[in-house]
Every structure is written in structure tokens, then in C-alpha cells.
């Protein structure tokens, strides 16, 4: 019902090659998250799949059929935009019913479907309001409702939560994940947010400058980053990446150690440094340590460590937790 295959898809705007060439298979029912730095082409890729942009070359298959030249409405996909893109002069009910009306469904059936969707999304008491009279989270739900009623082959989300505050974002994250469990429809989700990517995805696609750097499950990417870029991008706080003699000693050009895989001691260890900032979060403490010859390193310690600015500490990586990368940036197995 919702398998999407991209075959050497390219996209350029004039002579700017935004997407050099992408091959990607999204299985039916999968929750796929596109992450990458700003401007890397996530939105463009999503819009290519939606049909809002034309591919420069390559093919897009939806459900085994070539959809490259189909107009957006014919692809059977629904999209939720960052700005919600609700129709401001229509009530919530009319907004949700709009795609059904456009498909020529009779009013009664359409109303029934809209009401059902509203119930799932807790919108029942807002049906007669206009979007201007709703909060950000409610608007987002209306946008999702408008997508659900079409029973699309796949949902496309472009940073749907980035306009919400942190608490609401957490709630909506759960709601969308639950929705995915209920509907079991393919979802493609674009985000900047580490946490959204790690918690929601079945499969994460890491993009950089229009190229796919790695595709895999969240833990795959966390445990086995394919290259330096993915290693630095996935995980928060960032992995510590070191070059020079220490890396050479381990037979690599770059080595990486995650902050949570670093042991800290006040007496002895591999690297000696001075604490510059200690961020106390209660559950954890993030220590930023200035190490001679390596610059600043981040270490995650327990909430009970009693270290502060100016203290001298020794850091050492835990056994078997060091990632090694070659001169080309690729991981060495």
C-alpha cells in the first residue's frame, strides 16, 4: 500500500545541484525520518516525493507504479506542512472535509469521516472554529486530520512540530507515533530534531548536501556510524572527534568517543584536562573539558559528580567504545 522507491533521483534548480543522486527504498508501513543540517535538501527530497517539485532525472515509484510524472493529487500521498497551511476562512470541519469534497465524496459520508478523524485527534469540540481561533498544537492536529481523512498511501511531514513549544512538541511526538501504530501507514518525516529522529523512526536517513550519508535504524546509526559526518551528527551532545597521534596510535585518521563513553577521574587517565564548564542537569552532568592538544571535549557524568570550573580531571575512553575512521572519513570495521 505504501512502498516508495527512489531510483537515482536528481534535482537541480538552474545550475545548483541540490540533490546529486539519491537511491532509497521505503518499505510499506515504515516510519522513515530524514535528518540533516539546514539546507541539505530534506524538504526538497520530500517535495519531490510529494510531486510538488519535478525531478530533474530519475524515477519515483509508489506502490510499484512509476509516479515520476504524476501530479501531486494523483500520488495518493498526504502532506503536513511546517506552517500547517490550513485554509483560514474555512472552519475546522470544512478544512478536514476539503480533500474529500475535492474527491467528489457526498457530504454525509465526508462529514462522518471528518468526525471520526476529529475524534481520534481530540478536535471534536473545535469543529466549528476557524484556524485563527486555535492554538498551534490544535492547528497542527487539524492539519494531520486533513491528511488522515484521505487515507493516503503515505504521510509526508515537513518539520511539523518546529513551531511548537518544547512540552507540546513532546506530546505531539507521542501522538504521531501512536497514530503510526494505529494506522500502520508509511510515514516520511523531516526534522532537525535529534530526539524526534531517534524516538520516532524505524529508519533514519541522514542527508548531507543532498547525498545520503547513511540509512539505518536509530540504534544502528548510534552504535555504528558509517562515517565521521554521521558520527558527529547523531547523538547529543556530539561525539568527541580526535585526530593526530592518539588516532594514529589506534590505526585511524580520526577517532570518536561519545561523551557517555568517557570515564572521568581526578587522579589518572589517558587525557589530562581542565574543566571549563559543568552543566548540571540533575540526572546528568555535562562537563566541557579543555584537553591539551585536542581542544574541548564533552563528557557525560552522573548527576552527583562534584567538579567545577578550573578543576583538573583525567579522561579515558571506555574499552571497545572507540569509533575509528580512515582518511576518507569512512568507519574502519
Amino acid at each position: 500500500m505504501g512502498k516508495i522507491v527512489l531510483k537515482s533521483v536528481r534535482k537541480s534548480f538552474g545550475d545548483v545541484h541540490v540533490i546529486p543522486s539519491v537511491d532509497l527504498t521505503i518499505e510499506n508501513g515504515e516510519f522513515v525520518v530524514f535528518v540533516g543540517p539546514s539546507g541539505c535538501g530534506k524538504s526538497t527530497l520530500l517535495r519531490l516525493i510529494a510531486g510538488l517539485e519535478d525531478t530533474s532525472s530519475g524515477t519515483i515509484e509508489i506502490d510499484g507504479k512509476d509516479a515520476t510524472a504524476l501530479p501531486p493529487a494523483k500520488r495518493g500521498l498526504a502532506m503536513v506542512f511546517q506552517s500547517y497551511a490550513l485554509y483560514p476562512h474555512m472552519t475546522v470541519r470544512k478544512n478536514i472535509m476539503f480533500p474529500l469534497k475535492m474527491a467528489g465524496m457526498d457530504i454525509e459520508a465526508a462529514t462522518k469521516k471528518a468526525d471520526a478523524a476529529a475524534k481520534v485527534l481530540n478536535l471534536t469540540s473545535y469543529m466549528e472554529r476557524k484556524p485563527g481561533q486555535l492554538s498551534g498544537g490544535q492547528r497542527q492536529r487539524v492539519a494531520i486530520g486533513r491528511a488522515i481523512v484521505r487515507e493516503p498511501a503515505a504521510f509526508l511531514f515537513d518539520e511539523p512540530l518546529s513551531n511548537l513549544d518544547a512540552a507540546l512538541r513532546g506530546n505531539m511526538r507521542l501522538e504521531i507515533t501512536e497514530l503510526h501504530h494505529t494506522l500502520k501507514t508509511t510515514m516520511i518525516y523531516v526534522t532537525h530534531d535529534q530526539v524526534e529522529a531517534m524516538t520516532m523512526a524505524d529508519k533514519i536517513v541522514v542527508l548531507q548536501a543532498g547525498n545520503i550519508e547513511q540509512v539505518g535504524s536509530p540504534l544502528d546509526l548510534y552504535n555504528h556510524p558509517a562515517n565521521v559526518f554521521v558520527a558527529g551528527f547523531i547523538g547529543s551532545p556530539r561525539m568527541n572527534l580526535l585526530t593526530g597521534a592518539d588516532a594514529q596510535a589506534m590505526g585511524a585518521t580520526t577517532i570518536g568517543v561519545r561523551p557517555e563513553h568517557m570515564d572521568i577521574s581526578t587522579s589518572a587517565g589517558k587525557w589530562k584536562g581542565v574543566v571549563s564548564v559543568a552543566e548540571l542537569l540533575g540526572s546528568d552532568t555535562f562537563l566541557h573539558v579543555n584537553v591539551e592538544g585536542h581542544g574541548s571535549m564533552t563528557v557525560r557524568a552522573g548527576g552527583d559528580v562534584n567538579l567545577r570550573h578550573g578543576d583538573t580531571v583525567y579522561l579515558s575512553p571506555q574499552d571497545g567504545k572507540v569509533h575509528r575512521f580512515g582518511a576518507d572519513g569512512k568507519a574502519i570495521a
Binding site: 510538488l52 501531486p72 506542512f81 497551511a85 476539503f98 475535492m102
Partner: peptide
Amino acid sequence: LDGEQQEAAEMDGASVLSRFFYLTVPH
């Protein structure tokens, strides 16, 4: 006129004419 609104309507299956009457005219 909001471009994303037009695109959303396009995905919702609204033809150029329906987009004009349902979105542009009220706007």
C-alpha cells in the same frame, strides 16, 4: 497569498479552478 496553502490544496486534489474559488477568492 500563502504558497504552502496552495500546495496543500494541490495535494488535496483541488484543480486550478477550485483553488481559485476556494482559496484565492476568499483571500
